[in-house]
Nucleic acid binder design. Structure first.
Lengths: 103, 103
DNA sequence: TCTATTGTTCTATATTATTCGAACAATGAT
DNA sequence: ATCATTGTTCGAATAATATAGAACAATAGA
């Protein structure tokens, strides 16, 4: 059961985070993950877009260090790396999440 | 002395803010404006890039509602719209600024 | 009026990103 | 083994962005 590689929190950079969050689709994904408060499969995050498009966005979110993906069987379980990001960049992600739920 | 048009705080959208902040040059501009704590001319924000490039980035920062530019004579005085943005999206901009000064 | 200063706009180019169908890989079930 | 499921990767088309030189506009000063 090979797992996907993620950046360590030390490797995470602010510009990558900002870039990843600068897309409406990815903000939706982030918002859904935060709202769920638990791991979600890609399939459960249904934004009516092709699989390949969603996969692309997940790749960017993972690369930025915002999302962690654990492979369990055929499913990919996604969760926010909220605590880690908060520790490295206090307030950034939580403030964005708060702003997202407001709209 | 015609002034430049800016979006009202009601017109400001989170995705525009995130997009504007997803560029290293623009983050530098934001950081310098915050550090200065006062209005700066475009010339005072010297990042060793052509005027036209800088103008482009200022245009995006203005369009996102992050920067206000007042024309005074031949100079354009730039300042952060920190209070307004903080009120609409509490913590977002201040947390990013804090993260920027850390690096 | 002529000139210098400040910054924008125009234009073109190179780079990068988004999108999505199709093929592929890994796992689980029959 | 075969097939269904889940999601990634590939490839190509399209769109958006950054960059920067050149021309331009607005103002101030001599």
């Amino acid at each position: 059961m090979r797992q996907i590689k993620h950046p360590t929190i030390e490797q995470v950079e602010l510009t990558d985070i900002m870039y990843a969050l600068a897309d409406p689709t990815r903000l939706e994904i982030i918002a859904l993950l935060a709202k769920a408060g638990k791991k979600l499969t890609c399939g459960e995050i249904n934004l009516n877009r092709p699989k390949s498009s969603m996969s692309h966005h997940f790749k960017i979110l993972r690369g930025a260090g915002l999302v962690q993906t654990l492979i369990e069987g055929t499913e990919h379980m996604n969760s926010l790396r909220l605590e880690e990001i908060e520790q490295k960049y206090p307030g950034v992600l939580s403030a964005v999440l708060k702003a997202l739920t407001k709209d």
